[in-house]
Structure formats: structure tokens, C-alpha cells
Simulated assay, not measured.
Amino acid sequence: MKKLLTILLTTALLPACATSPTGRSQLMLISPESAIVESRKAYLSTVQELGAKDKLVSDPKVVDRVKDVTGRLVTIAKQEYPNTANWEWSVAIIDDPETVNAWCMAGGRMAVYTGLLNKLKLTDDEFAQVMGHEISHALANHTAEQMSRAMATTLGIVAIGVASEHSGAAMVGAAAAAKIALDLPNSRTAETEADKIGMRIAVEAGYEPDAAVTLWQKMGKEGGSAPPQFLSTHPSPGNREATLKAMIPEMRKLNPTGAMAPVSPVRIEEKP
């Protein structure tokens, strides 16, 4: 049994390589396509629950603002990554004034919490940097990468369980690992990748690159002794602001006139 498990583990890990948009090698036990399928299930379940609790925002001013900014970003994403043209781009605007957070799942399914917009008093340029960063996690297949990390952990747990003849405990660990995949913080490498891709997308969409710096300044001030939820899954090394600032001159060359991109259709989730 131990030999069989070793073979299975080795077979699973050997072909599990992929390359990110920046040329980085990625562990991929879950295909990007599978990540999109699973993300869709999780997203629809979340939206249904939010709708039942009357937590989906329908204020026209907020909806129009979110559609405008994310729609421009999606236009550039589809231009730069043609495989995303058929993604079901959508946003759930969540009525939660205390939560400073936003995310984008595999397949282009996004969410933004009212606390992010209101507590930080974000400008459109800063909001574009947030969502450009989040969209970049999806573009770079970070969701599939996180799920693969969880799967690798699960395989290790199962191996230990079999070796110690505690398979029942191992399966409990495996179930926990599957849940962890949804909450794992992005690695600093993935964050740096999303910073670069996200700023590029935002600038090409017509938004100011300087906003990436002011955004993180606001995020740091809001954090205090209890960091916003956004920072819990976005590790921020001390030199992040300096790194972002150093990128600005090169990024500005991508769109020197600041021309605004057209707005692509983005579905806003509504109350049932």
C-alpha cells in the first residue's frame, strides 16, 4: 500500500508544471479549467446566500461606478489575455461596511465590499488598482495554484495517515486541506506578480499608476493593530510601496495620454 501511494504521489507531481505570465514556474495539480469550474460553483453559492440575506448592493451610483471601472479593466484583460474573452465576468457588490476586501476568482467572478470603497474613500484610480490586482490573480492562474498547494498538502496528509495506519484521521485532514484552498494567502511571489500585471492593466485602462502607492498607504493606515481582511490574504512586505513607486515611470509609458479604455459588459449580481 505504501509503495502504491508513493507511485501515485510521484505520478501526480511529475506533470504538474505550468508557467505564469511572468515566466515563473507554477505547481499545477489542478488545471486552470478545473479551477474555473469549481470557482463558479463556489461563487454562485456565495451570491445566492448573499441575496437571501439582502446583502447585494443595488444603489445605482455604486453599481454604475463599479461597472465602469471593472468594465474598462476587463476590456484590457481580454485584449492581453484572449482566452478570457468567454469568461463570465461578473461582480457581487457586498453590503458590508466593516469589511475592507475584494477578490476575483478563476473565471472572472469578482466581489467588492462596501467597506473597501467607503472606509478607504477610494478614488476611481485607486479602486482600479485594487481590482486590477485582483483580476491579475485570476489571469495568472493563482486560484489553480492555491488549490494545487492545498492538494499537495492533502496528498502529504494522506501519505502520513497511510504510513501510520490512521487513514480516518488522514481523510479528515484531506477535507480540511480542500477548504484551506479557498482561504490560503497568496505567496509574496504571486503578490509581486499581481502587482505588476495589475498596474499594467489599470494604466492601459486609463487609470493613474500613482494610485497603486496611495492605495497601499491608505490600506496601511486603515490596518492599525487589526489589519483589514484584504491584507490577511495579501502579504505586504515593507518595501512594497517603494517597489510600486519604482514601477510608475515605466508603466506611465504604456499609456502616456491616459486614454480611457472602452467599457466591456460586466454582470452585477442582483437581489433575487
Results as ranks from 00 to 15, higher is better:
Lys3Ser: 13
Leu5Asp: 07
Leu9Met: 10
Pro15Trp: 04
Ala16Ser: 15
Thr19Ser: 14
Ser25Asp: 14
Ile30Ser: 05
Ser31Leu: 10
Ser34Gly: 09
Ala35Pro: 04
Ile36Cys: 12
Ala42Thr: 10
Tyr43His: 09
Ala52Asp: 08
Ser58Thr: 15
Val63Leu: 11
Val66Cys: 04
Asp68His: 12
Val69Cys: 07
Val74Ser: 12
Ile76Tyr: 03
Ala77Ile: 14
Tyr81Leu: 13
Pro82Ile: 11
Asn83Asp: 13
Asn86Ser: 12
Asn86His: 09
Glu88Ile: 05
Ser90Glu: 08
Ser90Asn: 05
Val91Ser: 02
Val91Pro: 04
Ile93Trp: 01
Ile93Thr: 06
Asp96Glu: 11
Pro97His: 01
Thr99Arg: 06
Trp103Lys: 02
Arg109Asn: 08
Met110Val: 14
Val112Ile: 14
Thr114Ile: 08
Gly115Met: 04
Lys119Phe: 04
Leu120Val: 04
Lys121Met: 08
Glu126Gly: 08
Gly132Glu: 05
Ala140Met: 07
Asn141Gln: 11
Glu145Pro: 07
Ser148Pro: 05
Gly156Thr: 07
Ala169Lys: 08
Ala176Arg: 06
Lys179Glu: 07
Leu182Ser: 06
Leu182Cys: 02
Ser187His: 02
Ala190Pro: 02
Ala194Arg: 02
Asp195Tyr: 01
Gly198Tyr: 00
Gly198Cys: 08
Arg200Val: 08
Gly206Asp: 01
Tyr207Phe: 15
Tyr207Arg: 09
Asp210Tyr: 12
Ala211Cys: 13
Val213Lys: 00
Trp216Phe: 15
Gly223Tyr: 06
Gly224Pro: 07
Ala226Cys: 01
Pro228Arg: 00
Phe230Lys: 01
Leu231His: 00
His234Asn: 04
Ser236Asp: 02
Leu244Asp: 01
Met247Cys: 03
Pro249Arg: 02
Pro256Trp: 03
Met260Trp: 01
Pro262Met: 03
Val263Gly: 01
Ser264His: 05
Arg267Glu: 08
